[in-house]
Design a protein around this nucleic acid. Sequence first.
DNA 1: CAAGATTGACCGATCAATCTTT
DNA 2: AAAGATTGATCGGTCAATCTTG
Lengths: 161, 161
Amino acid sequence: MAPAPRWLNNDELRAWRALRITMVGLLATLDRELQREHGLGLAEYDVLVILSEQPDDRLRMSELATVLSLSPSGMTRRIDGLVRSGLVAREQCPEDRRVSYAVLTPAGRRLLETAAPTHVRGVREHFIDRLSARQLGNLASVLSAVQIDPKAAAGGCDDAA
Amino acid sequence: MAPAPRWLNNDELRAWRALRITMVGLLATLDRELQREHGLGLAEYDVLVILSEQPDDRLRMSELATVLSLSPSGMTRRIDGLVRSGLVAREQCPEDRRVSYAVLTPAGRRLLETAAPTHVRGVREHFIDRLSARQLGNLASVLSAVQIDPKAAAGGCDDAA
DNA sequence: CAAGATTGACCGATCAATCTTT
DNA sequence: AAAGATTGATCGGTCAATCTTG
């Protein structure tokens, strides 16, 4: 293992720190706005969005967990809350009774539809509308370069592992 | 309140989602690497870094909490852990005995110095080195535009509040 | 036995309440 | 009374263990 790798220069360090604190602030702001206006956290909102995009408003717990980068148990508990609030229901798969679906309820869809404008407005106001089309394009290319390789993300990372 | 604000087009939506999942993955990866190689989480690492940059390796709890965007109680508990590990010590301010300092211990500095190369390597490998100087510059300009206004971040956000 | 989901124990965070010092 | 820090209750997450089904 190399004890002193190439250090970060000032610009690099500042870019990295700025990215971190900007994202933290942005997500916290969006979460606060959503919470205040609709009593819904960003995490719960994400679940509703994903479900609403599925053909039958439903997704298996395990797939939902994968999509949201959550552990299986974490997913169970997040759905627990949404079920308590009546926004999501559980349903068993008839073909394979091990799997259970999270299903968007009518109430869930209604709340999603009233909350979405708040979220979109926030994303625009604090993010999208502050950037030119050119900057947005640059950002997309940056992001495509930075995407973490799924192989590396899961298990052993470098050859020293 | 406007029920239907300007929606996000495909590019905007994808850029926003990509940014979110990229940051989540990136931070999770860096945290995992740090944890695996040094038994230190990214959150604890951040504390050591901040303290090491202070004149006397110390900072008031309240300032530390502000810098790290943590609640006062969250800060207390995070320092609790670092104190248990012997990486940080608490010290009372002689002039104002309400304030307590978190102080980097020699062990804390040693661990920071051995862990920093791992972190820097990770940031380079998964982020900096995947970008050209030009992309890094673009990113910096994007970030400066997106920085959240501290006024807006704290209390009421829009005029409807 | 393996896969999917849940439960128990625990960890780290928040808010509200508290204690000490100014 | 207000400021700084901590504590108690609780919330939402993880890991390890468990239960059920294939």
